[in-house]
Amino acid sequence: MFKYILKRLLICIPVLITVVLIIFWMLNVLPGNPIEQMMGEKLKPDVVERLTEKWGLNDPWIVRFGRYIRDVFLHGDFGDSYKKNRPVIDLISESFPNTVKLAVSAALVAWLVGIPAGIVSAVKKNTIFDRLCMGFALCGISMPVFWAAMLLQFIFGYKLNLLPISGYTTWKHMILPAIVLGWSSSGSIARLTRSNLLEAMRNDYIRTARAKGLNEGGVIYKHALKNSMMPVVTTMAIQFAGLLSGATITETVFGIGGIGRLTVNALQTRDIPLLQGSIIFSTALIMIGNLVADIMYSFLDPRVRV
């Protein structure tokens, strides 16, 4: 088992480098000088030329890639953001806590909605309860995020004036973003809870328990639920890793300075060092999430080595 985990961890490194390579290459294929882009419409051509030369942007991209990989892996240096003139590490570590705040509160909403909805619809399979609960949970994953966000802002922030519309300084600010993001994540949790619970309830030991005369609540709670939660927990782990890697649109609409917005801004302004840094960061998070999930599975059943 230990060997397997180690192997998987080692594989992560080349995967990460490949991701960076692909992005580096694509950015290179793109027309557009980062300096011109960053400094805007008013920049004079001679300044562009001077800085392009000075920052080594005239070198072939493969040279720059080599330099970048060397700096990152040998010196742990992610470079400075072109646009912000500050170390990439600083910018990421500044934005990450906000993303964490959002991720934790969104995950809470997702679990509080998703798990009960899934349980109800499994217990009441094919009844109106089933449809209503699943319908509610699925609505979240069936709306454009920015639209749901806008409607909630409009209703709760503007019409009812109960909650702040934008920002992230207090916990109250996090409620609307958490609902938007959490609701959209709850659908999958509800689905998985439902199908796993249904599966578990058909198992022999549940039948035995029922036959022994245990009451239904006890059966569901003590046996079925316990045994069916493992895959759900796994999903929650991956989903959480995904949330931690940033939710661009939610962050943009609610004015939250998180990783997602940082990354998209970096892409739009061709801030290559910042973009690389934040992509490495979020990719690593997603990979860890995937890894945890795979390990959990292979733990459950050693035959699985995906």
Binding site: I141, L181, G187, S188, L192, P231, T234, G242, N290
Partner: peptide
């Protein structure tokens, strides 16, 4: 978000 769900479903299925 839905991507994770798909991934999860696929993982789940592959494992099964």
């Amino acid at each position: 978000m839905t991507n994770f769900e798909k991934d999860q479903y696929q993982r789940d299925l592959a494992a099964r």
